[in-house]
Design a protein around this nucleic acid. Structure first.
Lengths: 336, 336
DNA sequence: CACCCTGCTGAAATCCTTTTCACGACGGGT
DNA sequence: ACCCGTCGTGAAAAGGATTTCAGCAGGGTG
């Protein structure tokens, strides 16, 4: 391997000078030039590991997401990358697969590799431990999901508002027995969307706390299969719902499949998805969605991280982004 | 930061012994135990950067993919992760976005960070330079796309065979003017699939080299938009095709959208997709696809990499995996 | 002319771990 | 009883960069 010493020898200067040339220290132009030449001739590439060891900080930022198969997170990742693009930092993705063990390992890697910063969409609210990173002074930004009592900057979606708008839309379309399939209990996103749903029902004079209404709420796992099973259960009820608010995109796929199985079709049974389904344009009837600002979420998180890295020890920030309702055919109203 | 020295002092041994405890050297059980205790008490976590510097090798493997938004690659990534899971290595993803500059930067990171190994689906055949990695002795495995004259292990799809089977299927279904929308010129996957398509036509007595037949071949960019544009062009021809073989999943989305725009629908105009569309189950008529072994591709690549890392300086291997045709409604045959 | 300040440079320390080397102790074979 | 091999251990070197510190030269000021 060609090191800074080799370059120094070739250019007739000290290693310190070579380092200064590459890191913007004070060096005579002539000398700098000969160092550049020597480096090019030898094909010198700085050893990032040695640099990280000395600087106590590497030049990659880690993005930990819970499901690489979910287009929401890949879009978010794009946002992060595009923002980081303009700096000298590289983004590496870590897929925790909603598994807190895998996530813990990745957070250990981030810590051990002394990453410049970490953006994390937590796999769990209480078992995601950002403490060690924070103690080590590594900037951390939480995105989409807020981990329990961690003092970090955060970029969130206004889930409550989104859930409320969605449910209000279903009510306005004439649906009366509106079910909700939300995510795992304990996940902030699940709970907030559910709370929004209940708030809208309450405002409309329903009583979402009644046993009857509670039976229309299902907790699933944010995956296709979970959505399918939950919908099957709802359809098997003595008085099945006439519409369903599905709290994430993948579960909506499962819901639509379950409906097709059962010979039901929107908008007779209204379906509203919280979060886009990629290429939903091909599905007929077209799907009403609450669109999430996934890309902006990522971009904003990265900007917050960069800002925090460049030193401002200002107060912690939480940015909340709004959703947008796209009304389409799947919620046109019950028969007639 | 608590270092190996702190642990050593606390346990009353030398740093070397602490290192041996964590790396499986010869240490008296009693001593080992007291080191473990001290480490736990102090919350010691080894500094991976220092370790990498000394060992000249880190413990992460890099996976460079050209499009994180393409489910084919995310599924491949899962395969890699699952295989790596059983080792102490962590996988980090790098999204090159089909951009050779971004890709080059990521390869530099892999080199500079002294990654334990790299799996790469090359963004370009000729401008993807794996040389420096190989020279440094970092094991590299090419997956899905073979970079030009690089001496690396590889895991590929039998694209030629897949293209041939696909086209033969269209012919058997009664289509006669079969177009092909393939990827960028120069990409191995594009060319091989196209060659398979042509081989099938030739066998059936067509003359794919004729000007007429050549006009039915379009090169696009493997993205939704490219597929849409190519299909629009094909539909605008004086004698438009009665079926189309689309060489990747995302372009098929665009093709279906273009058809819908033009008021056409499969199977009157047959559509066959090379590669799955996630949740295609929701699309009617259901889509005939050539299914790619994406997950297995990733898993096999990781296994090859691990094998290479564990020292066997055996001959280079290229593993080729076959595709599977799933005939569905979209190629049921032209009207009637 | 004396002094100080600035700008450039190189030697050496530093970051933290792994690994080599040397050494002492101990057990077994002759 | 002697020697050899093995095992466990610690001191110290190595890995490659950054950064501090001190020194030196040159220009500007009083």
């Amino acid at each position: 391997m060609v090191t800074i010493h080799d370059v120094a020898r070739a250019a007739g200067v000290s290693p310190a000078t070579v380092s200064r040339v590459f890191n913007g220290g004070n060096v005579t132009p002539a000398r700098a030039h000969s160092v550049q030449q020597a480096a090019a001739a030898l094909g010198f590439a700085p050893n990032r590991v040695a640099r990280s060891l000395r600087k106590q900080r590497s030049s990659v930022i880690g993005l930990v997401i819970p499901d690489i198969g979910n287009p929401f997170f890949t879009s978010l990742a794009r946002g992060v990358e595009d923002a980081a693009q303009r700096t000298s930092l590289s983004v590496v993705l870590c897929n925790s697969d909603e598994d807190t063990d895998k996530e813990r390992r990745y957070l250990e890697v981030a810590l051990g590799e002394q990453m410049a910063g970490v953006i994390v969409a937590a796999a769990s609210r209480d078992r995601t431990d950002l403490g060690p990173l924070i103690e080590r002074g590594i900037p951390v930004v939480a995105v989409d999901r807020r981990p329990h009592e961690a003092d970090v900057d955060a970029v969130m979606v206004d889930n409550h508002h989104g859930g409320e708008v969605a449910t209000r839309h279903l009510l306005k379309s004439g649906y009366r027995r509106i079910a909700c399939i939300t995510g795992p209990e304990g996940a902030s996103t699940s709970e907030e969307r559910l709370a929004g749903y209940r708030a809208a029902l309450r405002t409309a004079g329903h009583r979402p706390e009644s046993a009857d209404a509670r039976a229309h709420v299902r907790h699933a796992d944010f995956r296709v299969e979970g959505g399918r099973l939950a919908m099957r259960e709802l359809l098997a009820m003595p008085e099945p719902p006439d519409a369903v608010f599905v709290a994430n995109n993948l579960m909506t796929i499962g819901v639509l499949e379950a409906l097709r199985e059962a010979g039901q079709e929107p908008p007779d049974l209204g379906v509203l998805s919280f979060g886009d389904i990629p290429w939903a344009s091909l599905v007929r009837p077209s799907l009403t969605t609450v669109e999430l600002p996934s890309y902006e979420l990522g971009r904003t998180a990265a900007e917050l991280l960069l800002q925090r890295m460049s030193g401002g020890s200002s107060a912690l920030q939480t940015v909340v982004l709004r959703t947008t309702l796209h009304a389409r055919e799947s919620t046109a109203g019950p028969r007639g």
